[in-house]
Simulated scan of single mutants.
Amino acid sequence: MADPTPVLDDLHAESEELDLLVAELSREQWTLPTPAPGWTLAHQIAHLAWTDHSSLLAVTDQAAFARQLEEALAEPGDYVDNGAEEGAGKPPAELLADWRAGREALEEALRAAPAGARFPWYGPPMSTASMATARLMETWAHGLDVAEALGVTPAPTDRLRHIVRLGVRTRDYAFGLNGQPPPFEEFRVELTSPSGELWTYGPEDADDRVTGPALDFCRLVTRRAHRADLALDAVGADADRWLDLAQAFAGPPGAGRPPKGDGP
């Protein structure tokens, strides 16, 4: 059973880094457009606050989460966007306070969860470590959108290892989500971490393989960049197909980001 402490510690650090980026923004900066169509910087933080609240319900009040899940199923195309829209309409100080309080409460609840606990979600039930990994992935990905809106390039860290692992583990989910049968054989994945370490997954002798920077792989599986703009290489037809549809998050893939034309 995986110890959730390392990913919880990294989730805390990732959230604090994003907090530092937005803590002193002017009211006007909160209305800056981000790469997500129709979403301002406030929408990005509001979405994180909304999802933290949903996660907290899943951990601490599963009956309330079940009711929220029914509401989401009743309006699958708008439910998440409506939550972001509502939060983005709050004064920035209130939105920031809500996000801070929600993520702190969620962290406390996850650290206090009994070993082996599993929580309901919009996809399959999740363990404590999986829930924390999903929150880290979203915090990092939406943080990229915030940083781009502000003209900032955050330095990548080895906290990306959690997102890489999630991206690898969701390979079959991504194929299924796109109506394609997942490959029978495992892939070999070799990615260079920000610190220069080589992270490897799958059998060494696999016919299909993916190589490149871990940062680019994380941008791909969170759909924050088009494949054409990333230094990822695929060997084998199945691995090549995977790079076109990979995603590490639940729900529909969306349109994704268009290529910028300045790829590797």
Rank of each mutant, 00 (worst) to 15 (best):
M1H: 13
A2D: 12
P6S: 13
S15L: 10
E24C: 11
Q29A: 15
W30N: 10
L32T: 06
T34E: 10
T40R: 14
L41F: 05
A42W: 07
H43N: 12
I45D: 02
D52F: 03
S54F: 06
A66H: 08
L73A: 13
E75M: 12
E75S: 14
G77A: 11
N82G: 08
G83W: 04
G87H: 09
P92D: 14
E94S: 14
E94W: 07
A97V: 06
W99R: 15
A101Y: 12
L106G: 10
L106C: 10
L106S: 09
A109P: 07
R111D: 07
A113V: 08
A115P: 08
R118G: 04
W121Y: 13
P124I: 10
S127V: 10
T128K: 04
M131T: 15
M131R: 15
A134P: 01
T139F: 02
W140G: 00
L144T: 00
E148D: 12
A149C: 08
G151Q: 05
T153C: 00
A155M: 11
P156G: 05
R159A: 13
I163F: 02
V168H: 03
T170G: 00
R171M: 01
D172N: 14
D172V: 05
E186P: 15
D207N: 07
T211L: 06
P213H: 05
A214K: 03
L215R: 10
R219Q: 10
H226I: 01
R227M: 05
A228L: 12
A231D: 14
D233S: 14
R241E: 14
W242N: 03
W242D: 03
Q247K: 10
A250R: 10
P253H: 04
A255L: 11
G256Y: 05
P264C: 04
